[in-house]
Amino acid sequence: MATTLTPKQTDAPSTDGGGFDDVGDGGYGGDDGRGGGWSNELTPPPEGYSLAIRLTIVSITMLFLALTSAYIFNRARLQPLVTPRVLWVSTSFILASGVTMELARRALRRRLEDRFRLWISATMLLGLCFLGAQIVLWKRLVASGFYVNKNHHSGYAYIFTGLHGAHLIGGLIALAYVMARRPASWTAVRRRVSVDATALYWHFLDGLWIYLLILIFYWR
């Protein structure tokens, strides 16, 4: 291509931006853009992951907000529902997993590979325990007669916990990926950004659970 530079000329033209501002209204602005291009070509910017995960969180928030509005619209909270004790077990599991996730993230920052693996494993284990506790929760609900179609409240309880669990499984897959992938196969920066993104998602699920816990079981 004629307009692109040949690889030999590595110096970037430094003047760009501006230029059109003086022509009149509606100039195109003078900021110098993303400065991508030159350095990014070889190491694509890892911030893509963290931005993507933030957007995912926004979208999932929308999902749960829509469900919450439906929950309120149906006046579901005004119907009876039991509050099994296993809720506290699952809550402690997921809160603990948040702590271990954070420890894993810090271990990676300090390049303590073994500890990183240890804490990630602990997080995954706690995540699985949480899912187990949720299944026990479902069984307790069934045992108390609150089937999916008993009333709106129990219906929403299953939908909320089920969707939260499904998103948590996504988090577990991400954790498994960052742990299983050989460190040599990607750059340290990318790895760290991926772990940060996973951690952010995990903490979001933590917070989401607390929100759901209060919404479904304690808000009357």
Binding site: A2, T3, L5, Q9, D11, P13, S14
Partner: peptide, 14 residues
């Protein structure tokens, strides 16, 4: 720098 800009002008697609 100069060269590369010159090139740009010359090689703009006809």
């Amino acid at each position: 720098m100069k060269i590369c800009e010159l090139k740009l002008v010359i090689h703009s697609p006809l």
